[in-house]
Design a protein around this nucleic acid. Sequence first.
DNA 1: TGGAACGTTGACGTTTGCGTCAACCTAAAT
DNA 2: ATTTAGGTTGACGCAAACGTCAACGTTCCA
Lengths: 161, 161
Amino acid sequence: MGIELRRPERTFSIRQLCLEFKCTPRALRFYEDKGLLAPARQGLNRVYSYKDRARLQLILRGKRVGLSLAEIREILQLYGKEDGAAAQNAKALAKFRARIVVFEQQREDIDHAIAELTSACARLEELLAETHPELLTAEPAVAPGVHARPGARDLAVAKHH
Amino acid sequence: MGIELRRPERTFSIRQLCLEFKCTPRALRFYEDKGLLAPARQGLNRVYSYKDRARLQLILRGKRVGLSLAEIREILQLYGKEDGAAAQNAKALAKFRARIVVFEQQREDIDHAIAELTSACARLEELLAETHPELLTAEPAVAPGVHARPGARDLAVAKHH
DNA sequence: TGGAACGTTGACGTTTGCGTCAACCTAAAT
DNA sequence: ATTTAGGTTGACGCAAACGTCAACGTTCCA
């Protein structure tokens, strides 16, 4: 039939999204409880649209930069309603600006941290080279070009202990 | 007499550090409990040296970039003992490198976030300018309240609920 | 016909990072 | 002598962000 299964119409099961984004069903349901997601239902089952997937991406990015779920929800809400009460928009503007400032501070902190860790690595490498060269794993730097892709192979999220 | 009271010899009370770094005594004691700080004592009272202050700075920076206290402690420990078991140093090296990778990912995320919020701000400004220009506070940058995150009411500015 | 595989809703447990008393000491100022 | 302004150690409380069962419903498929 003529129905094209192009990407924008695709839907996702909870597990598909979890595999793609390395998280657990529990987490997605939790985000839903907290009002960050609202997938459609097919009977009882959740059905995630492309828009839901995009939201999830934003949520996870937000988390990685240290936002709380409450803050993320706020931002998502403000994002959606560009109309409505203008006073709300003014408040949104202020909040956004404030967040930008915080982010810039954070970037500075991260640059600091990277610099310090890098020099610490250099010192450690020297030290090891002198005393126990056999322990040098011979990986002097981060593999260039390759963004640390976790390589989703299993459905169980392995933890580091 | 010849004794110079240069900075390196200065010591700090718990409150002084709290004021300087916008945190609470409770937090500092907590960090101590967790093995991140170990100030000298004068009777019962804690006396923080310049080195302690530096450690505190690192701790807070670590927190701001999303490290857990446990991770920060690990880093601080590895920092202090450049000798000792070489195998430990090798592990430290690996961990540091891994953290650097995470940090670089984080920086990317933050740049993303800043970009998105900035464009959102621009859109909001336009929208407000058209519909309710009187709400434009004409503060293109930040105004109030130093950026300290939650709570901190012990000796900081009173906050909204 | 039944058992994987996938989904659902509770509900309780856990860790982290402190806040918040309470009860007490102690040196300095009044 | 007593208030005041700092400090101390417990001990309990709490919110965030899930993990971890338990008990149960579908659908497919050999």
